[in-house]
Computed example of a mutant assay.
Amino acid sequence: MAKYFYISATLALTIYAQIMLKWRAVTLAPSVPGRKIDYLIAMYTDPFVLSVFVCALGASVSWALAIERMPLTLAYPFMALTFVLVPLGSVLLLRESFSPMQILGSALILVGITLSVYKY
């Protein structure tokens, strides 16, 4: 059961990192007009953006622990959930739009994941 905990932790940390980075990019860009270097400095000194790097490290550690315990052919399809959950999170938290085609694409991804891991 620990293997699924590590997969879940990897997914959660990855999703957090993607949504947090987008949120801070949208928030900081208007506040730092002009040179891109000023924007990048603001981004990479922001505590929330720095938390993204901590999460990336945590996700890589969690991923290493997950694939130690399960075949990559089982573990890796679960990572495709990020292609569904990150856009869903951006709709819920960042108020982005989600088109009918994106909904269909997400459904197909979920079908693909189900088929990929079905034998296990």
Rank of each mutant, 00 (worst) to 15 (best):
F83N: 06
F98L: 10
A56E: 08
R35N: 15
A64I: 01
K22E: 07
V49D: 14
S60A: 06
L50I: 11
L88G: 05
I109Q: 00
M1Y: 07
Y6R: 06
V91H: 07
S62A: 14
S99I: 04
K22P: 00
L57S: 14
L92R: 05
G105A: 11
S62Y: 01
S62R: 03
E68W: 06
I67N: 09
I113Q: 13
Y4C: 08
L13S: 00
F83R: 05
V32S: 15
G89L: 02
A12Q: 11
L40I: 05
S106V: 02
P71F: 02
M1L: 07
L28P: 13
P87E: 02
I113V: 13
L11H: 13
I19P: 00
A42Y: 03
D38W: 10
V52D: 01
A12G: 12
Y120Q: 08
W63R: 03
I67D: 07
V49H: 14
G34N: 14
L85E: 00
L88H: 02
F48E: 12
L81V: 04
T10M: 03
S51L: 07
L21W: 08
M43S: 05
V61L: 09
P100H: 11
L40H: 09
D46K: 03
S62C: 04
Y44M: 06
L65M: 06
F78H: 13
T82I: 03
P71V: 02
V54C: 13
V26N: 09
L108W: 03
K119N: 08
M101P: 02
Y4K: 11
Y118S: 09
R69D: 06
Y76W: 12
L93F: 15
Y16S: 06
A80Q: 13
L93W: 12
I41P: 01
S60R: 12
G58Q: 12
V91W: 10
A80F: 10
M20A: 14
A42V: 01
S116Y: 08
A66P: 00
V54P: 07
A59D: 03
F83V: 00
T82C: 04
W23A: 11
A42F: 04
V117D: 07
F78E: 05
I109E: 01
Y4R: 14
F48P: 04
F5H: 14
P30A: 03
A29H: 15
